[in-house]
């Protein structure tokens, strides 16, 4: 066997590892660079707060921003409380038997179902069967079903990270189950739950497939009046202007992508901030 010079192998492995991480981060940098370079020129206050004009070739993207915002907020308001409650039940109350284990496994697997499947499911159930039509409510319900397993899973992880001994110590003092959860477990699991929630927000703001058939409008001449209206959303708007409209000015496409990217990056940074902030205050 050939004998390697230890110093050489040290340098070689360093190089391989360094190249691998560069390879992982390069595309992100390139994407951001191209989008910023091409889209920056169109970004103005005007672009953010006005309606599209001339078959979306001019004007702004206000309805798409508002549509995305409304859908994301409604979804998270629906999924976060439900998901956290479900996680608390599964983790703290449900007995450990074959049924609950199957349910837990099912939830983890649901989180991996492709989003277009949820889109079709939502179309079948909410749009057709419940006759809610293509509307904000259908989109929100579809996204909620998609995001619920993710929220349940991240919340369960957060609850699991609170040492079991805290619960035992509290029970041993005669404090009941719910009080222990309310005053010991939840406060300590909160950072993890919040991080999961913020990342979910980032994920659903970028989703196209689930709202494609359930909520998104090709073009809406006015802002939505109620939850039964169709809306424009950023990801879908981006898809349309880049594929469906001839003679679309390039800078508007990149500008729209930039706004979407910026939104999601901001949300992700909030998640990182929340985690760092709470980790500093974690005491075990």
């Amino acid at each position: 066997m050939m004998k390697f010079n230890p110093k050489l192998s040290q340098k070689l492995s360093y190089l391989v590892l360094f190249l691998a991480s560069t390879l992982a981060i390069m595309p992100v940098i390139v994407i951001i660079f191209i989008i910023v370079k091409n889209g920056m020129s169109v970004i103005s206050w005007e672009f953010l707060v006005s309606m599209p004009k001339n078959g979306m070739r001019e004007g702004g993207i206000l309805p798409a921003i508002i549509g995305t915002f409304v859908i994301v907020m409604c979804t998270i308001m629906l999924t976060l409380p439900t998901g956290v409650c479900a996680a608390v039940y599964l983790n703290e109350y449900a007995r450990d038997n074959t049924l609950t284990r199957a349910i837990k496994l099912g939830i983890v697997n649901l989180a991996g179902v492709p989003s277009v499947v949820y889109g079709l499911f939502g179309f079948g159930i909410f749009v057709m069967f419940l006759k809610l039509g293509v509307s904000i409510i259908s989109g929100v319900l579809t996204l909620s079903i998609m995001e619920l397993p993710v929220i349940v899973t991240t919340s369960r992880n957060a609850l699991n990270s609170v040492p079991y001994s805290f619960r035992e110590a509290s029970w041993a003092l005669g404090v009941g189950r719910w009080q222990t959860i309310r005053h010991i477990v939840l406060p300590n699991a909160l950072p993890g739950i919040m991080t999961g929630a913020v990342l979910s927000i980032a994920r659903i703001s970028g989703e196209t497939a689930p709202i494609l058939f359930t909520a998104a409008a090709f073009y809406a001449p006015h802002l939505p009046h109620s939850i039964f209206d169709q809306v424009m959303t950023l990801p879908y708007h981006l898809y349309i202007i880049s594929t469906q409209i001839p003679n679309m000015p390039n800078n508007i496409i990149f500008g729209t992508a930039l706004v979407l990217l910026f939104m999601i990056l901001t949300i992700s940074f909030v998640a990182i901030f929340v985690r760092v902030y709470f980790r500093k205050h974690e005491k075990w």
Partner: peptide, 11 residues
């Protein structure tokens, strides 16, 4: 009341 082997103070 019960005291455990490891001290468990709440955070």
């Amino acid at each position: 009341g019960m005291l455990f082997a490891m001290p468990i103070s709440f955070p």
